[in-house]
């Protein structure tokens, strides 16, 4: 079975967003995991100096997965905003994914958790540097 067919089994619903709509809000709680079926979305982070975009997600990208794959990761670590709308999303079946996740060895789960944390930390540092670069541009 290829990934497209498999995906079908995991998608439990569909949602559509217009450009600028917030799909996931940083700091909120929620365990929905999405896959982009059409359009693009931007990943943004809040900083002391405002909101900065750090990444763009395209068709096939899964987001919201950190809540499932990270330990002690209850809050959304970044916002996801529909960028190139209408953005069509598939909502993945959390229970099905959780069953997959529970079948992993504790070691592999720790490894994936470490990856989630590294991604989170790296994103935070990127956001801070983007802010610093923007501010310097304004000063110069």
């Amino acid at each position: 079975m290829d990934i497209a067919q498999l995906m079908h089994l995991y998608i439990s619903g569909e949602e559509t967003y217009d450009s600028g709509d917030i799909i996931i809000e940083e700091g909120s709680t929620g365990d929905w995991i999405y896959i982009i079926q059409e359009g693009q979305a931007k990943v943004t982070k809040r900083t002391a100096a405002g909101i900065v975009a750090i990444d763009t997600l395209k068709k096939g990208a899964v987001f919201g997965e950190m809540v499932l794959l990270g330990k002690n990761q209850e809050k959304r670590s970044a916002s996801v905003v529909a960028a190139d709308g209408p953005v069509k999303l598939g909502v993945l079946d959390f229970q099905l994914l959780l069953r997959d996740y529970d079948s992993l060895s504790p070691q592999l789960r720790s490894l994936i958790d470490a990856l989630v944390r590294r991604l989170k930390e790296t994103s935070e540092r990127v956001a801070a540097l983007v802010v610093a670069a923007n501010q310097r541009r304004k000063v110069a």
Partner: peptide, 22 residues
């Protein structure tokens, strides 16, 4: 499980992209 691997691979790609940017 393939779906989980698909998601974890993306996580890794995203991390490497962020690291490169950093």
């Amino acid at each position: 499980p393939p779906m989980l691997k698909y998601i974890t691979d993306q996580l890794l790609t995203r991390f490497l992209r962020m690291n490169h940017l950093l």
